[in-house]
Amino acid sequence: MTLRTLFLASAAACTALPALAEVNIYTTRQPELIQPVMDAFTETTGIEVNLAFVQDGIVERLRAEGARSPADLVMTVDIANLSQIVDADVLQPVDSPVLNAAVPEELRSADGLWFALTTRARIVYASRDRVADGEVTTYEDLASDAWEGRVCTRSGTHDYNLALTAAMIAHHGEDYARQWAADLKDNLARKPQGNDRAQVRAIWAGECDISLGNTYYMGLMLSDEEQTEWANSVRIVFPTFEDGGTHVNVSGVGMTAAAPHRDDALALMEFLVSPAAQQIYAEANNEYPVLPGAEVSDLVASWGTFTADDTDLTELAGYRSQALRLMEEVDFDG
């Protein structure tokens, strides 16, 4: 048998093999944050999961790849990011009784293009030594003169803060939100910088007394030997809007239009909202499960309870461009 004949025979044998059982994911989340739940899925089903971390340009990448894209699923944080991916027309609808039953209606798109997997609250970290209980209760309070020179935050144009500003627009209108942002800027102890954990470090160092942050960062700090002291210098406060609840955002998933492994991808999506997967999310990432009845971790439970604001998430995404514009108008980061 010639080499050419042997090669052709081998190629023919390969094409006769069933397609690999795998799911390819483009994710803006650090892979280590979601690897535990992916490992559990593989152990349960035998289906391999390949994670590709795409920090920027995920929409552009999917558009450029088109029908040739190897990605089956997209996972990201923030409702605005999910909405941008939807608007790019790179996802396909998923009609799954399992997903529809597990994910509350307000945490998924009506057309099946995205489903929330976890939620997180945008809260206030307050100095245990310098801020009394009840001293800050609403997001509107942050613009009060009482906090002049006492607030730290990351960039006003970061997705997390834009979502909060969009929620302020939804509750009070753009003019109010613009003045709120300007007054909040006047209360800053320093120029916006760093991430949410950097703000807690600044409170520990005495540079400010309160900061905005996401709940799960407390868990991340407590798991880091260097940052535990920062975490212990603050407590979590769940502010509300004056006419609403505590601002929440989501991490979510959608199936790409190309999805070369659609059945396996759907199996993973359904697994991610199962009791087992939601418990892993809760324990590993200190996030809030979307599955009704799923328990939070003991650490998260120790932070207390809150009532989530009921503003529609897709409405918030629609206000993102206005939120960005007004943050730039008040030169929040300047």
Rank of each mutant, 00 (worst) to 15 (best):
G254P: 09
D183N: 15
A146Y: 13
F271E: 00
D264H: 02
P260V: 01
V37F: 06
L299S: 06
S155W: 08
V273S: 05
E105W: 13
V124M: 01
A21W: 05
E328T: 11
S321D: 15
Y160G: 14
A301M: 12
Q193H: 05
A323F: 06
R61D: 06
I47T: 12
K191L: 00
R63N: 13
I210T: 01
K185N: 02
A40T: 14
A67S: 14
N81I: 14
A167Y: 07
M327W: 10
A19K: 15
V37S: 06
P260W: 03
G252E: 04
E270C: 03
N286G: 11
A12T: 11
G149C: 01
R154G: 05
I210A: 00
A167F: 00
L316C: 10
V253A: 07
Y288T: 15
I34L: 10
E32M: 15
N161H: 00
D133C: 03
P192I: 04
V59D: 09
A205R: 08
R150F: 04
N249E: 15
M255A: 12
V37Q: 08
D56F: 11
L184R: 01
A13S: 09
F332W: 05
D263F: 01
V253C: 07
S10W: 08
F306C: 10
V250H: 07
A282E: 00
P292I: 04
V296S: 14
H158S: 14
A265W: 04
P93K: 12
R320K: 13
Q199N: 09
A166F: 06
M1Y: 05
A163H: 06
P97K: 06
T119K: 13
L73S: 04
A323V: 01
L107I: 11
A12Q: 05
F238K: 12
I169T: 00
W303Q: 09
R178Y: 09
G318Q: 11
F332C: 01
I47F: 01
I236N: 05
A40F: 10
A116D: 08
Y281C: 10
D331W: 01
P104A: 10
I79L: 07
S274L: 08
R29H: 11
S155G: 02
V77M: 14
D78F: 13
A189F: 07
G293V: 09
L99T: 01
Y125W: 06
E225R: 08
E242P: 07
A40M: 14
P292Y: 10
T137W: 11
A166W: 03
L266E: 00
Y319S: 11
M1Q: 12
S274C: 08
L82N: 13
A126F: 04
E287L: 13
F238N: 06
S109K: 08
Q30C: 11
Y216E: 09
L299K: 12
D39M: 14
I47M: 04
R122M: 13
Q55N: 09
E225Q: 12
F241N: 04
L324N: 10
H261E: 03
